[in-house]
């Protein structure tokens, strides 16, 4: 059930990001919402389960982007590893730390994507003022909306389990 919920959630986020967000004019300033899901997996879900979900979601994103093969998969794995590693030193499940955790994830994603852009043969190594503006906007969005998205995802995840149990129980009673 957890697998189904997170893979479904990942697919919904991907479709939203590639269609609706562009019509809402959010693409330049808004961050990758899957980062929130990856952080959630890093904070609350077991390693094996998380790796399967990250693999599928990262692969789907890689098939839709123009970057090098495996860029999103790499990004999500490093964000996940960063969150897991930080758990040993910080109490990351504290709500007050959420903005910084999401901002860290968004920053790491942008750094890896920049490296990915540079790694392509024909790309020139230049960071424009517009890139700084985009990253700054993303960080601001992440700081203010990331914690809410994380809390919402946690709530949905918990409730989805309960709904599933209720469905199974109802099915057995019938």
């Amino acid at each position: 059930m957890t697998y189904l919920f997170h893979i479904g959630m990942g697919m919904i986020i991907i479709v939203l990001q590639t269609t609706i967000f562009h019509h809402m004019g959010l693409v330049i300033g808004f961050y990758d919402l899957l980062i929130v899901q990856i952080i959630y997996l890093g904070l609350y879900r077991p390693l094996r389960e998380s790796l399967v979900i990250i693999g599928l979601v990262g692969f789907a994103m890689d098939s839709l982007t123009g970057g090098p093969y495996g860029l999103y998969l790499t990004t999500y794995l490093w964000v996940f590893a960063g969150v897991r590693w930080s758990l040993a030193y910080f109490h990351l499940s504290n709500t007050f730390i959420f903005p910084f955790v999401v901002a860290f994830g968004v920053m790491l994603e942008n750094l890896i994507h920049l490296a990915g852009t540079v790694s392509l043969e024909s790309a020139s190594v230049s960071i424009a003022r517009a890139d700084f503006r985009t990253v700054t906007l993303q960080l601001l969005w992440a700081v203010f909306t990331g914690p809410l998205a994380l809390i919402l995802l946690n709530m949905l995840s918990q409730h989805s389990g309960k709904w599933f149990l209720r469905l199974v129980t109802a099915g057995k009673e019938d």
Binding site: M11, V15, F59, D62, S63, L64, P68, Y69, G70, L120
Partner: peptide
Amino acid sequence: LTIGSRSQTTSFLPYRVTLSLVAPLQEIF
């Protein structure tokens, strides 16, 4: 990543399959 960026000239079957699966949803949206 370097190998990935070099091999962009060749098409990758699993990506084509994923594109075929996700794109109809995107089209509907």
